[in-house]
Design a protein around this nucleic acid. Structure first.
Lengths: 234, 234
DNA sequence: CGCGCAATTGAGTTTCGTCAAAATCGGTGG
DNA sequence: CCACCGATTTTGACGAAACTCAATTGCGCG
C-alpha cells in the first residue's frame, strides 16, 4: 500500500495571479486586475509533499485546484478493493472540476512528487464565468482536456499487452524535448497499467536488456524512443 | 470487422423542442419559446439504422447531437490497428461536445441499435450559453457526465479479470427496473472489454452454466443480478 | 552495520489469446 | 417448406502472457 498522509498543512500565502507565469494557460487567464480585486476569497498557494492527500473521493468540497508544478494521481477503488489510478495531473491541470456542478470529489487525489498548487473556491469560478466568456470557454477546454486524457488512458494504457502499455506510459512520462523520464513506485505503475508489481518489474528488466531503457540513476531513465515507438506499433 | 455504412440519409424533419419529452433532461431544457424562435438554424431530427456512421474521428464538424433513443458506440483506434470502444451513448447523452472548443470529433460514432438523434450546430449552443446560465451549467453537467462515464469505463470494464469485467458490463446494460438486457455482437463486446471474441463467448457460456444469465432469446438475456454482483465483489 | 521496505527473480498455476474445427443462426431462393 | 450459403458463434487444444506465492537482492536511513 502507498503511504497515506492526511493533509494538515495550512494553506498559506496568497497567490499573485496577475504575475503568474502560467496565467495565459490557466483558468484565470482572461481575468483583469479589477476582477482579482473583486474576489471575495483570494487564491491561495501551497506546496505539498509526496504522499499527502489533497482530497478524498466522496468529500463534498468547495475548492478547485490548479497544478503549478509537480505531479498528482487521481485514484478510484473497485468493489473488491482493487485500486486504480485513473489520471495523472501535472502543470496547468485543474483538479476538482466536479464541484462546479455540485458533485463531491470523484477521486482520491494524492501527491506523487513535490507539487505547487493554487486553490480557489468554486464560487469564484461560478461568479466570473457568468460574465466572462473567456473563462467560460476555458472551463470547457479544461473539461475537454480531461476527457481526452481519460480516453487516451483507456486506449493507450489499458488496452493490449502489458509491454506495449508500459512503453506508452514511459513515452508519456518523458519530460518535454528530452528522452529522459522519472519513474515512481512499481505499486503505482501497476495501478496505472492494471498489472502486478512483479510484471511491472519484469517488463522493465526486459526493456533494459533490450536497450529500450537505461537507468541513469534510481528511477531516472533514459529512453530509446525509436525502439519503444516501434514496439508499440508492432 | 463491424460493418461500415456511410451516412447518406438526409436530416429531415425539424424537431419540436418545446414539446420534447426529454426537454428537462436535455441540453436545451432552459430555453424559452422565444429562444427557439430566434434560432438561425433549426434543430433537426433523424432516425439512424445499426451500422450507420454518424461521424468519423478527425472530422471537423460543426454539429452536436443529442440521443433521444437507441444506442451508439464511440470508437478509437490504436497505432497497431486495435479497435477500442471507449463509450456507449444512449438517451439524453450528447455527442460531439468537443466541437464546442473547436476540436475535430475525437471518435468514430457508430449506431448499434436503431437510434433517434437531434442535431444542432455548435453556433446555436455557443450563442445561447453566453447569456443563459442554465444552458451554461447544463453544458458543464454533460461534460462531467461523460467524464464520470469514462472513469467508470476504465475502472469497471477495463480493470481486473475478464469475468468480472463481463459481469460489470451486463449489469450496466440492464434496462432500468428489470433484470433483462440486450447484448450485441461478440466483436463489440470484445472491443468494450478488451478481450477476444472467443473469450467473450466462453465467459458467457460459463455464466449460463452457473445460472448467472439465461438466454430468453437470441441476444436477449435475463440476469441473475445478485449472483453477478457477488462475482464482482469476490 | 543492520534494519525495514521496495524491487527483483524464480517456479508453478491460472487466465487469456491463437488457431482450427464444428455448430448455429439468418436469410435466400428453389 | 426446406436446402443451402455465408457469417457469426461456440468449442477444443495448445501456447503465451500474466498472476501468485515465495525467496532473494538491493537500497535508504538511522
Amino acid at each position: 500500500m502507498t503511504k497515506r498522509v492526511t493533509l494538515t498543512q495550512a494553506w498559506e500565502g496568497t497567490a499573485d495571479c496577475l504575475n503568474c507565469s502560467l496565467r495565459s494557460t490557466a483558468l484565470f487567464g482572461g481575468l483583469t486586475r479589477d476582477d482579482f480585486e473583486q474576489m471575495h476569497e483570494p487564491v491561495e498557494q501551497v506546496e505539498l509533499q509526496p504522499g499527502e492527500v489533497l482530497y478524498n473521493a466522496g468529500d463534498s468540497g468547495r475548492y478547485m485546484f490548479t497544478v503549478r508544478s509537480g505531479l498528482l494521481k487521481l485514484v478510484q477503488y473497485l468493489p473488491d478493493g482493487t485500486q486504480r489510478i485513473v489520471r495523472l495531473m501535472s502543470s496547468t491541470d485543474v483538479l476538482g472540476l466536479e464541484v462546479l456542478v455540485d458533485k463531491p470529489y470523484e477521486h482520491e487525489a494524492i501527491v506523487l512528487r513535490v507539487s505547487e498548487l493554487c486553490r480557489y473556491p468554486k464560487e469564484t469560478v461560478d461568479r466570473f464565468s457568468k460574465t466572462n466568456p473567456v473563462l467560460q470557454k476555458d472551463l470547457l477546454k479544461q473539461w475537454q482536456k480531461e476527457l481526452t486524457a481519460a480516453d487516451e488512458w483507456l486506449t493507450k494504457l489499458s488496452t493490449g499487452p502489458a509491454k506495449k502499455r508500459m512503453a506508452n506510459l514511459l513515452l508519456r512520462l518523458v519530460e518535454d524535448d528530452s528522452n529522459e523520464c522519472f519513474l515512481f513506485s512499481r505499486e503505482d505503475i501497476g495501478s496505472i497499467l492494471s498489472i502486478t508489481i512483479e510484471t511491472a518489474s519484469r517488463i522493465l528488466s526486459e526493456f533494459k536488456k533490450l536497450n529500450l531503457i537505461k537507468e541513469i540513476r534510481s528511477n531516472h531513465l533514459e529512453l530509446n524512443i525509436a525502439g519503444l515507438t516501434e514496439l508499440i506499433e508492432s
